[in-house]
Simulated scan of single mutants.
Amino acid sequence: MDMVQKEITRDDSLCAKEVIEQHPREERYTLAILQDIQRKYKYIPREALETLAEYLNTPVSRLYGMATFYKALSLTPKGKNIITVCDGTACHVAGSMIVLDELEKNLGIKAGQTTEDLKFSINTVNCIGCCAIAPVMMINERYYGNLTPKMVKEILDEYRGE
């Protein structure tokens, strides 16, 4: 499936510059700046990397290395709603893979992918820290526990209606 790549516009580029310039021009703030860019766009656009490289007077390749090293950062667009499925021991035993299968079936994408309309992305993690309500998933900052396949569909329908 081809993902629609969102091009950032000149206005977006100016917004990235505004995000970047909120931080001191010191390399020790690089990760914080990348996180702020990620928060704004749901990924780190190439143009933002280039703007940051110029701001910090550092090679784009160094920033690219950081952006690809940290799993929380992405160089490809993410969905408006980021779904994180826990596959830690408690969740796995309680059926997290059934939850993941239901998500993939309903959205038509696999873990690590984003829907073409950029509405949803699915990720998996080793632990969310909510073992008592396993299996668990998060959508953006909201937690859902004791999940069943039927609940997954109902929850997705809520987000589709936004």
Rank of each mutant, 00 (worst) to 15 (best):
D2M: 12
V4K: 10
I8Q: 03
I8V: 15
L14N: 11
K17D: 10
K17V: 07
I20L: 07
Q22C: 14
Q22P: 05
H23K: 11
P24A: 10
P24Q: 15
R25N: 12
E27K: 14
L31H: 10
L34N: 06
D36L: 10
K40L: 13
K40V: 14
A48P: 01
L49T: 04
E50H: 08
L52P: 08
E54G: 10
N57M: 13
N57E: 15
N57F: 06
P59R: 02
R62M: 05
Y64F: 13
G65V: 02
M66A: 15
F69C: 11
T76C: 03
D87Q: 14
G88M: 00
T89P: 02
T89R: 14
A90V: 00
L100G: 08
E104W: 07
E104A: 00
E104G: 02
G108R: 06
A111N: 12
A111T: 15
D117R: 14
S121C: 11
T124F: 00
V125R: 04
N126W: 06
C127R: 14
C127M: 06
M137Q: 03
I139R: 01
E141A: 13
G145H: 00
G145I: 13
L147C: 04
P149L: 02
I155G: 11
D157G: 03
G161F: 07
